[in-house]
């Protein structure tokens, strides 16, 4: 559990940076930069770990679900 919580570190950093950026370049440009960075890096993560994220076999349905024969 400990290491998984490290992902939250991004939020205070992102929030502080957004406040400073809005005062510097304005609200619209800040939102544009944040969303563009988010979209590009999501795509990059999907490409780099394609085998682990995209090409994994589907999760088996619960045992209680009707099985096709």
């Amino acid at each position: 559990m400990g290491v998984r919580t490290l992902a939250i570190y991004g939020m205070p950093v992102g929030l502080m940076a957004s406040g400073a950026l809005i005062e510097l370049v304005g609200y619209l440009l800040t939102i544009g930069v944040y969303c563009a960075v988010g979209l590009v890096f999501t795509l990059l993560i999907g490409l780099k770990w394609r085998a682990s994220l995209w090409e994994r076999s589907p999760v088996a349905p619960p045992a209680s679900a009707p099985q096709r024969v």
């Binding site: 992902a7 992102g14 957004s18 988010g38």
Partner: peptide, 10 residues
């Protein structure tokens, strides 16, 4: 981490 950095602040 990326989502916390860029999506949740917005």
């Amino acid at each position: 981490f990326l989502i916390n950095l860029t999506a949740y602040p917005v």
